[in-house]
Design a protein around this nucleic acid. Structure first.
Lengths: 201, 201
DNA sequence: GCTGTAACGCAACTTGGAGTTGCAATGGAT
DNA sequence: ATCCATTGCAACTCCAAGTTGCGTTACAGC
């Protein structure tokens, strides 16, 4: 607890180094992936000596985990526009924005280049997926109540149908992901839901 | 060229070793991923000495690439049942079968744990995705001609909509992927296409 | 502006897996 | 039974991870 009170000194240098290292780690993740990320490479890019990294972070995994730590800063509010169409569009757009931002791209790079089971990365994944999905489910529930979607529409299935095309392009094909992708994903999920293809089993 | 004629001897031992090493490589890929795959680990599992691997394969990358080489054996015929619904169902089912089979799981593990840019792996990916997608496009074209789908439906978009939920579960969530997944993916893609959400822009 | 101390730079380690080499042992085809 | 390609084995080099001891720098407080 209160780490501020008994170590009030030397915050300037430390903070600068930490930020530089975080930025360097994210950049290396995006450029080379986790497998090819070396501690010396990060140190060099951050303009810092290797030993300094090992004094502040336990190992390579901690380094990456910490750089990805506060994904909560990227967390977006859940829309409630009164229309399922614009709600879904908004959800898709913020997903695209998140995953094309540097931190999102670094998270993807980490998760899909060998760091999937690193504790910190797995936690970041949970934060971005599970939590976000759970928080978005009321959007679907409200649409069902308003009669915009068929009774029995599965919120989880609909949200997965919304996100799947975006991730498919990000991970499998390598097609550009932009607002048009979000738009089409929203329309696709909406059409399927209206047709009753996303009902609870 | 004719490698059979001037090296007719010693095929028995070599073939046995090759098969054992291939199997061991695929197993290690699935269990640990590419990043954590060690040559000594493969050698140990295959019951073979490390040096033997380095004499038959140039390096770790070649080892993995060769183990994944003949994905053509997994290639499935393109359905033409006369109905887009059963065609899509069949496509989704064979996709699920392919990706839950040992070789498919190993391919996924290789592609998404650090070996994405290894030449042989990239080629296998191309073979499984691009080629297969291109070959499946006539299925959609025929359905449009039959009037089952709206004019202007984009074959590529429809096939991506079909595959996306499957890969989403395989790669992002870790939900089980089975016939039900295939069924739902087919219904989802079909509903979206019928609603005109997958038209060419 | 001076000083004390925490944080940093530096060099020299150990460890472990990739990849190599020379030589001895083995086993299948003839 | 013999031959020789293939395999087993041990002893290497190389590189990045991670560690340690000590000298150096730069900020906080006075």
């Amino acid at each position: 607890m209160d780490s501020e009170s008994h170590r009030p000194r030397q915050v300037g240098r430390g903070a600068k180094v930490r930020d530089a290292v975080h930025a360097a780690t994210l950049a290396e993740l995006v450029e080379k992936g986790y497998a090819a990320l070396t501690v010396e490479g990060v140190a060099l890019r951050a303009g810092v000596h290797k030993t300094t990294l090992y004094r502040r972070w336990a190992d390579r995994e901690s380094l990456v985990a910490d750089a990805l730590a506060d994904l909560s800063a990227m967390d977006v509010p859940i829309p409630d526009t009164g229309s399922i169409e614009s709600d879904l569009r908004e959800l898709a757009r913020s997903l695209v924005r998140m995953m094309t931002a540097p931190k999102g791209r670094a998270l993807l790079a980490a998760m899909f280049s060998g760091a999937a089971d690193v504790p910190g990365v797995a936690e970041a994944r949970r934060q971005v997926f599970d939590d976000r999905f759970r928080r978005a489910e009321p959007v679907v529930a409200r649409a069902v109540e308003r009669g915009e979607l068929p009774e029995g529409t599965d919120p989880s299935e609909l949200l997965k149908a919304l996100a799947a095309p975006v991730y498919f392009r990000l991970l499998v094909t390598g097609d550009p992901v932009d607002e048009i992708t979000a738009e089409r994903a929203a329309l696709l999920a909406l059409a399927a839901a209206r047709a009753g293809a996303l009902r609870r089993r």
